[in-house]
Design a binder for these strands. Structure first.
Lengths: 143, 143
DNA sequence: AGGCTGAGTCCAGAGTCCATACTCAGGACT
DNA sequence: AGTCCTGAGTATGGACTCTGGACTCAGCCT
C-alpha cells in the first residue's frame, strides 16, 4: 500500500518537522537540530533517510574561509509535501486550540493570505468540512 | 508549537493508518488489527490515545445474541483529518510511484471524481505545485 | 603546532515495539 | 451446571530504538 509505505517514512515524530524547517529555509545540521529539537543521532539518521527517499538533497556549501560542509535542501518531491504540512497545521489550529498561536503559518507569496489545504474534487467542487461525504474506496488485492 | 504537538500524536507509523481505516468504516478492534496490521498491544494503546485526543469516540455495539463490545468511530475532529490523509495519499501516488496502484482513493460522494488536497489561498488562488512560492513565517516565541 | 567549529559517531541506560501466550466476560451448546 | 467459543484486550520478555553526553574528525586560521 502506498500510504502505508509513506507512513513508514513519515510516521515519525521528527521527519515532518525536519521537512517543515527545510521548507522554511533551514539547511544546516546544527540549525536543524536547534529548530526541530531532534537529538543529533536521530537527526543524522533522518536526514539520511530523507535523502535516500529523494525528499532532501545533500549539497555542499562553503562559507568564506571555511571548509565545505553539507547542507540539506528540499527536492521538488520535498516541496510537494507542503500540502501535508499545511493540512496538519490547519488541523492543529482548529482542533488542539490550546493557548499559544500557531508557530508557523503558510502564506501566499502573492497576496499574503493564509494558505490552507482543502479537499477539492476533480469536478471542481470543494468538499466542505461538513458532511458532503467523501466516500473512499478501492482496496482490491490481498494485503 | 501546535504542529509539534500534533506530530507527537500522529508521528507514528500506525496512528494515521488507524484513522484512515476508521474513515473507511472499520470500527472493531480485530478488524482494525487486520486492516492496519498493527500488533494488538500497539493498537490498544493507539486507540486509547486517539480517544483521549478526541479523534475517535468509543461506543458500544451489540450484535444480536452477543454481549456489547466497544467500537471506535471518528469524531468530527477525526473526520477533519481527511485532508491530511488525502494529501499523503496524493504525495505517495505522485512520488513513490511504485508498481501497484493506490490502495485507497478519496472520491467525491456527489460526482465520483477523485478528491485531492490542494493548497488554496484565502484570496481564492490555488497554489500550483510549481513555484508560485508559498512563503511561510511567524516563529515568534521561544521554543 | 594548537585551537576552533560544524558535523557528525559512540555509548549506555531508558523507553518502545512486537510476538506469543494468557485472561476475561458473556452468550451458546450439551 | 459446566464447557466451549469469540472478541477484546493484558502480561511478558527479548529485540529494537531513542536519548543525552562524551568523543571524533576534517579543514581553516593563528
Amino acid at each position: 500500500m502506498a500510504v502505508t509505505e509513506a507512513l513508514s517514512l513519515f510516521g515519525d515524530r521528527w521527519v515532518l518537522l525536519v521537512v517543515r524547517e527545510a521548507a522554511l529555509g533551514v539547511r544546516r545540521f546544527t540549525d536543524l537540530q536547534q529548530t526541530t529539537g531532534a537529538p543529533r543521532t536521530v537527526l543524522a539518521d533522518r536526514l539520511r533517510r530523507l535523502v535516500a527517499a529523494g525528499v532532501l538533497e545533500q549539497r555542499e556549501y562553503v562559507l568564506p574561509g571555511a571548509r565545505p560542509r553539507p547542507e540539506y535542501v528540499l527536492t521538488p518531491a520535498g516541496r510537494d509535501l507542503l500540502p501535508v504540512l499545511a493540512a496538519f497545521s490547519d488541523w492543529a489550529a482548529r482542533h488542539l486550540a490550546d493557548d499559544r498561536p500557531p508557530d508557523v503559518t503558510y502564506r501566499h507569496a502573492g497576496c499574503g493570505g493564509h494558505v490552507g489545504a482543502h479537499l477539492v474534487c476533480d469536478c471542481g467542487a470543494e468538499i466542505t468540512p461538513g458532511d458532503q461525504l467523501v466516500a473512499s474506496v478501492l482496496r482490491e488485492g490481498a494485503r
